[in-house]
């Protein structure tokens, strides 16, 4: 039972689940680094999931990914209008957007309403496709050569496109955040917005941008959840995963590279728990394993609040504080 194939499968599945959290947290890291707490991530993800469901069946995968990213980015911009320009409470607006995401997605995915939407997108959709509760998943694209490697080959190099994209993007996002002047501007805006403003950084424009980025990535994460991982539509199918991504951002201490490790950890926990249940271990009490991400987040958050740790890691000082020039 404990042969290499078993371990390979476990690793591959860990990456598959982890990428979901990785995609969602990458954008969120940018928003929080610039001082905006996007609590609407869960709602943005479910919108991404439902648009990818409806668009895939109506028009195909390409449109679905574009639409999910666009809708997500749009919700990010809405967040920016409400919290950056109007300076409304980020917590309330974020929660409202999560509830709104549940509402709109539940309606859009419902058999009685999705027919209208799908017919509007593509009048020629056959009725049996409209009635489908699932959609074709993204196809696996094993990278020739690399996917033949023992152990890591299956884990890292035989997935769908979004998985590779997410892993590459994590490095790109890290590079932009810590090695470019743009990243410096983002971090300074989250640390001390009035100082950054005095030095000529446009705080408002930058926060609009990071909100849009976090929305875009949230939308993609939702699309990945649906067409990349679990292509069967269920109402509220994100089931709190957006909030797990929020806790991952804390665990990763707002660093895209650490987010890769953290997402693999969270993905691994989820996968191992399913596997153990298959063998009847912990089948009675899976709840305590499922609690882990949240407990980890609270413990990390408390540790990060200790002054010396806080200085070294650099928690964004102006997180969730609106900025106004007065």
């Amino acid at each position: 039972m404990m042969d290499v194939g078993w371990l390979e499968g476990l690793l591959a599945l860990t990456v598959q689940v982890g990428v979901l959290y990785l995609l969602a947290s990458l954008g969120e890291i940018y928003a929080e680094r610039s001082g905006v707490l996007n609590l609407g991530l869960e709602g943005i993800m479910i919108i991404g999931a439902v648009t990818s469901f409806v668009f895939t069946n109506a028009l195909g995968h390409g449109h679905a990914l574009l639409a999910a990213a666009a809708f997500g980015g749009g919700m990010g911009l809405l967040l920016a209008v409400l919290t950056v320009t109007m300076k409304l409470n980020q917590i309330v607006v974020g929660l409202a957007m999560t509830i709104m995401g549940y509402g709109i997605s539940g309606l859009m995915g419902h058999p009685s309403t999705r027919e209208h939407v799908m017919r509007a997108l593509n009048p020629g959709v056959p009725q049996e496709v409209v009635m489908l509760q699932r959609a074709p998943p993204l196809s696996q694209v094993p990278i020739p050569g690399l996917s033949e490697l023992p152990l890591v080959g299956k884990a890292l190099f035989s997935h769908n496109v979004l998985v590779y994209l997410a892993l590459v993007l994590a490095f790109v996002m890290w590079f932009f955040l810590f090695r470019t002047s743009f990243g410096l501007a983002v971090r300074s805006v989250g640390e001390n917005p009035s100082m950054a403003d005095a030095l000529g950084v446009n705080v408002f424009r930058l926060r609009y941008l990071t909100c849009a980025i976090s929305g875009l990535f949230g939308g993609l994460a939702g699309a990945y959840l649906f067409i990349g991982y679990q292509p069967f539509w269920l109402e509220m199918m994100t089931s709190g995963r957006g909030f797990i991504a929020l806790s991952l951002v804390i665990l990763a201490s707002w660093n895209p590279l650490r987010a890769i490790l953290g997402s693999l950890l969270f993905g691994g926990v989820e996968v191992i728990q399913y596997r153990l249940q298959l063998y009847g271990v912990g089948a009675q009490t899976p709840q305590f394993v499922l609690m882990l991400p949240y407990v980890v987040a609270i413990v990390t958050l408390s540790l990060l609040s200790i002054e010396s740790v806080r200085k070294r890691i650099g928690v964004p000082e102006a997180l969730s504080k609106p900025y106004s020039r007065e």
Partner: peptide, 13 residues
Amino acid sequence: NLPFAAVQLFQST
């Protein structure tokens, strides 16, 4: 024949 989501839409707006 609308889902509970309709209520969530009202609440959020």
